[in-house]
Design a protein around this nucleic acid. Sequence first.
DNA 1: GATAGTGTTATAGTGAACTAATACAGTGCA
DNA 2: TGCACTGTATTAGTTCACTATAACACTATC
Lengths: 124, 124
Amino acid sequence: MEFKDTKGIFQQIADNICDKIISGEYPAGSKIPSVREQAAAVGVNQNTIMRTYMELQRENIINNQRGIGFFVSDSAQQQIINMRKKEFFDVQLPEFIKQVKLLNLTNEELAPLFDLLNENHENK
Amino acid sequence: MEFKDTKGIFQQIADNICDKIISGEYPAGSKIPSVREQAAAVGVNQNTIMRTYMELQRENIINNQRGIGFFVSDSAQQQIINMRKKEFFDVQLPEFIKQVKLLNLTNEELAPLFDLLNENHENK
DNA sequence: GATAGTGTTATAGTGAACTAATACAGTGCA
DNA sequence: TGCACTGTATTAGTTCACTATAACACTATC
């Protein structure tokens, strides 16, 4: 797995796992890879995975049983979507709007955005 | 000056200086604060400021004269705007679109965005 | 009970970013 | 020339994220 240097590695791994939970690759109640397995898979240290899992556990996205493994919580999907929505409205959207204003972008330049929104409109 | 931990300190200081250049606080040709002055002002080490200034120099935003100081380049404003536009279209816009799709947001939730775009439309 | 999987914890080490302190060198001006 | 301001460079130290390695404890299965 490749990492950006804008975020901690453990955080990027957490995001990656959350993606898989949302997509259905890791359904609610299923067991996720063990600490050792995951560490080998993404090529980092066990302690780093442990930190990732601890964090996800703190957020009620996974839960664990000592000696058995970590499991996806029932509320995981909803939990992740809520967190990401909060992040989106608190941070990303304001930041995005600020940038559009600051850069004084034309509607022509923002065409991809219009396309997205129109598409959105048609489907709802 | 307060720093987030999502970016290097030197980078955040550079962004801050760029903001001042864009806003006109530091006009083209003017002298920006000396390394020592700036270090004291934002409360970091001289070496960190030096790194910031070196980076800005590499990007042709400022230029220096040994023993005299660092000065804002003639092309600085345009340079900064170009860099930020590139960043916006290469990273921020795609990321934003991805998030809107992923979170399956309704048009109601995206109201602030519509407002912005309509406003944009009226003025151009 | 033995074994092989799991989580859990601890210690030491590395690398990078930033700090602290200091010294050296160029420029301008009295 | 001397002084006060600049940039420039060096060395040592701190902190933090991550690594390397190892040991210990729990659970399931045979």
